[in-house]
């Protein structure tokens, strides 16, 4: 709990917040909180989806169905913008999953930073990191899956020969094959890594700013200075939350659009 760590100072407070609840060490470290919250939010999506699915009405859609249809149309529009009509079947549910799931996982960032860890520590859980997207494992897992799909569709559309040819001749033509291989490899690998790091970095930084704002009154005793720091903290927190609502939405959207674009690029026939 925050007050317990107050004696340890700001560094320990932040480090405590950045530590996952985990079992195992090294490569075998399993972040239970990350998995728990992502699965919980995934279950929420599925639960709401099933509720919508039970009362599906073509003639008179109700509120929740309207909202779902709106999101669906939005995603479909993004897909049609980069694929036309020949999008593979997986792309739509993939993009929709990313948008909803990433947004919800990001949204955990807006819950007061000490609230859930405090409750957890009350229940005897020492560490708790509530935002799954501040765990690089989550974002990299999604980015890797997108990368696998990109490679799969590249080979499927261009053929294995075409895919290799892309590595050999791509940016500079046939006289600079070694450079081409390096450039294309970097190009291809940069896609999933940037995808994962962008989301992770934004969410991690966002959480860090919340931690720093929380530090303003950390361990403060009732005193005159609290009259300045406490209102300042409230105002800063509100401002950062307001800004962060945009950030979490934007990051979820960017992740989805880039996924669509990367898989769309894999579908283009190259003439090089």
């Amino acid at each position: 709990m925050a007050t317990e760590n107050a004696g340890g100072g700001p560094v320990e407070y932040i480090q405590h917040h950045l530590t996952n609840l985990h079992v195992g060490e090294g490569f075998w470290q399993l972040n239970i909180d990350t998995i728990f919250f992502s699965v919980l939010l995934g279950a929420l999506i599925v639960f709401v989806a099933m509720r919508i699915g039970r009362g599906l009405r073509a003639e008179t859609p109700n509120g929740l169905q309207n909202a779902a249809e709106g999101i669906l149309e939005f995603v479909d529009e993004q897909i049609r913008d980069s694929f036309g009509s020949r999008a593979p079947k997986i792309i739509a549910p993939l993009a929709l999953t990313i948008l909803l799931w990433v947004w919800l996982m990001n949204f955990m960032d807006l819950i007061p930073i000490d609230l859930l860890p405090a409750i957890a520590s009350g229940l005897g859980v020492e560490y708790l990191k509530v935002v799954p997207t501040t765990d690089l494992n989550t974002t990299l897992a999604m980015a890797l899956f997108v990368f696998i799909l990109t490679v799969y569709y590249s080979i499927k559309v261009k053929g294995l020969g075409g895919y290799i040819k892309m590595f050999l001749f791509h940016p500079f033509g046939k006289f600079l094959i070694p450079i081409n291989i390096v450039m294309t490899a970097i190009d291809e690998l940069a896609k999933p890594i940037s995808l994962a790091l962008r989301l992770f970095g934004n969410m991690f930084a966002g959480e860090l700013v919340f931690l720093l704002i929380a530090l303003l009154t950390l361990g403060a005793t009732i005193s005159a200075s609290l009259l300045i720091w406490f209102p300042l903290q409230v105002v800063l927190d509100m401002a950062w939350i307001a800004f962060h609502i945009l950030v979490i939405t934007l990051q979820a959207f960017i992740f989805m659009v880039l996924t669509i674009v990367y898989i769309g690029m894999a579908h283009t026939q190259d003439d090089h």
Binding site: N20, Q29, L30, N31, G42, W101, D135, A141
Partner: peptide, 17 residues
């Protein structure tokens, strides 16, 4: 904080989702 088996778990969760 580092890459771990969690990634595999999350990958499976993602595909399931």
């Amino acid at each position: 904080m580092s890459i771990s088996i969690t990634l595999v778990a999350q990958l499976i969760a993602f595909v399931l989702m």
